[in-house]
Amino acid sequence: MNKISFTIALDLLKNKAILIFGFILAFLGWGMFLLESQPEKTILALLQVTLIILPLVTGIFATVYYYNSREFIHLLLIQPIRRSSVIRGIFIGLAGGFVFSFLVGIGLPLLLFYPTLASLYLIIAGLLLCIIFTGIALWVSTHQQDKARSMGIILLFWVFFTFVYEGIQLLIMYQLAEYPIEQPMLWSVFFNPVSIARILVVMQTEAAALLGLSGAIFQDFFGSLKGSLIAIGVMVVWAVVPYFLSRFKFIKRDF
C-alpha cells in the first residue's frame, strides 16, 4: 500500500507539469519575499496565490493525471491488491505531491522570512486546499468517463468556490442589509472551503481589526482558538468527504 502511493507520488513529481507548478509556486513564494520589503504585503499576495491558483492547478492537474493514468490503474487492479488500496494510493500520492510542492514553494519561504501565526495558518489552509481539490477532482473523475467533461466540471467547481459563492453572499447581504444576517452568513462560510481558508488567515493579520468593527460574530468565532480549530476541522471534513465519495465509486465501478 505505501509502495503504491509512494510510486504514484514519485511518478507525479517526475511529471513536467507538476515540476512547472512547483517552480511557479517557488518563484512566487521566494521571489516575493526577496524583492518585497514589507512582509505584511507579501503574505496577502501569497494568500491570493493560495486561494486562486492553488485550487485551480491542483484540481485540473489531478483530473488530467487520473485520466492519463488509466492504464496504470488497470495494471494495478489486476494485481492481488484491493481496489481501496489503489484509490487510496492515488489520493495520497496526488495530494502528497501537491502538498510537497506547496510546502517547498510557499511554506518554506513563509516560515523563513515571516514566521508568524498568520504564516502558519496560511500553510495549514494551503495544504488543506491541495488535499480538498485533489479529492474533488477524484470524485468528479471516478464518476465521469470523459476527460474533457471532468475538466469542465472541475473548472465550474473552482469558479464557484473562488468567485461565484462570495459574489452571491455579497448580493444577499446587499438585499438583506436590514436584517440580522451575520449568523447565517457565518454558517454559509462553512460550505466553501476557499472562504474558510481565507478567513482563517485574514483573522491572523492586522485586517482582523476591521472585522471587529463590523463583523463581531466572525471576530468572536474565528478570533478564538476554538473557532479556528473548528474551522480547520470543517476543512478536514471537506478534504475527506469527496475522497470517500470517489473511493465508494471506484470500488463499485467497472474498468
Partner: peptide, 11 residues
Amino acid sequence: PSATFLLHSPF
C-alpha cells in the same frame, strides 16, 4: 458593514 468578512476574497 457585515460584508467585511469578504475582505481579501478573490471575488
